[in-house]
């Protein structure tokens, strides 16, 4: 194809970024990784310590990551507070052991939280989805959070203390992220559900992909890495650099579109455009016609 020559530059760009990632990796990853063919970008298990620079304290991983995203564990010192908050807010459904078995007398099956990783817990609490307003609803909607940021970290710290697991809570370095890469990756990975303008849309059986218009960077990264609800998890298929690119695109262009052509018409695309064209365009002109012509 004639396409290939021009696309080669893109491949080169990918290759370069892969190289940038691979160099530190070769240093920090176990021996078998060095046998990988050169085109492997080492994104395997991205979002876990397996693929990144790891910081340990007393033999426990406290943070890991790279220049794009740093994943930090919530401080274990918060665990006691976290347990109290947990018992108060979450235990009625998820059980006192956080294993999804509620106290005797209650019915229903709820997710086991043990081993989900602090990012998951933080995402659900900080997006206001948990504690749920209606535990039986098909999909908990985004709301004003009931717990504060520190309280969410505390709950995550306690659940993580039961069985330490990944991913930790990400901090995204947006400064070096590439918004153009993010746009391309967004179109490839996210637009199918959230729409290309980030508005979200209805999915099967009353579920829906939420709008991305008002979501902080950390939660975007958490959602990508943990796959909340019906969203797939993006682990080995996206590197931290790529996630940072997507997060930058979402928090800039999606959340603050430039709309150089005027009002954005709610981002609904041709539906809204059709209504504007017919009602405002044809309608207004018909009214003018009504004035021009005679009425009898």
């Amino acid at each position: 194809m004639g396409a290939s020559s021009a696309r080669r530059s893109r491949i080169v760009a990918w290759g370069l970024s892969a190289f940038v990632v691979a160099v530190p990796l070769a240093w920090f990853t176990p021996a078998h990784a060095s046998t990988l063919p050169p085109y492997q970008t080492g994104r395997r298990n991205a979002g876990t310590p397996n693929s990144s620079v790891v910081v340990k304290k007393h033999g426990v991983v406290t943070s890991y990551g790279d220049s794009a995203i740093t994943y930090r564990a919530p401080s274990p010192a918060l665990a006691a507070l976290g347990q109290a908050l947990y018992l108060q807010n979450c235990a009625s459904c998820h059980g006192t052991e956080a294993n999804g078995v509620p106290a005797a007398g209650t019915t229903g099956a709820y997710p086991n939280l043990v081993g989900l990783g602090p990012a998951t817990i933080d995402f659900w609490i900080e997006s206001g989805r948990m504690p749920a307003a209606d535990p039986r609803s098909v999909q908990a909607p985004r709301r004003t959070p009931r717990l504060t940021h520190d309280q969410a970290l505390a709950v995550a710290a306690w659940i993580n203390s039961l069985s330490p697991s990944y991913p930790y809570i990400p901090t995204v370095n947006l400064k070096d992220a590439n918004v153009a890469n993010g746009a391309a990756l967004f179109a490839l990975n996210c637009a199918a559900c959230h729409t290309i303008e980030g508005d979200g849309d209805a999915l099967a059986r009353s579920t829906f992909a939420p709008s991305l218009r008002n979501i902080p960077a950390t939660q975007v990264a958490e959602a990508i890495r943990t796959g909340p609800g019906n969203m797939p998890r993006f682990t080995g298929n996206l590197s931290d650099y790529q996630v940072a690119d997507i997060v930058k695109y979402v928090t800039t262009e999606i959340q603050h579109p430039r709309n150089p052509g005027g009002f954005g018409l709610g981002g609904l695309g041709p539906v809204a455009e059709g209504f504007v064209g017919l009602l405002l365009g044809v309608g207004l002109l018909a009214l003018v016609g009504f004035w021009v012509g005679e009425r009898q």
């Binding site: 637009a191 729409t195 041709p270 059709g274 064209g277 017919l278």
Partner: peptide
């Protein structure tokens, strides 16, 4: 690539 909520003109 694909986006959700893709519609033709009215």
């Amino acid at each position: 690539r694909i986006s959700y909520a893709v519609q033709p003109d009215w």
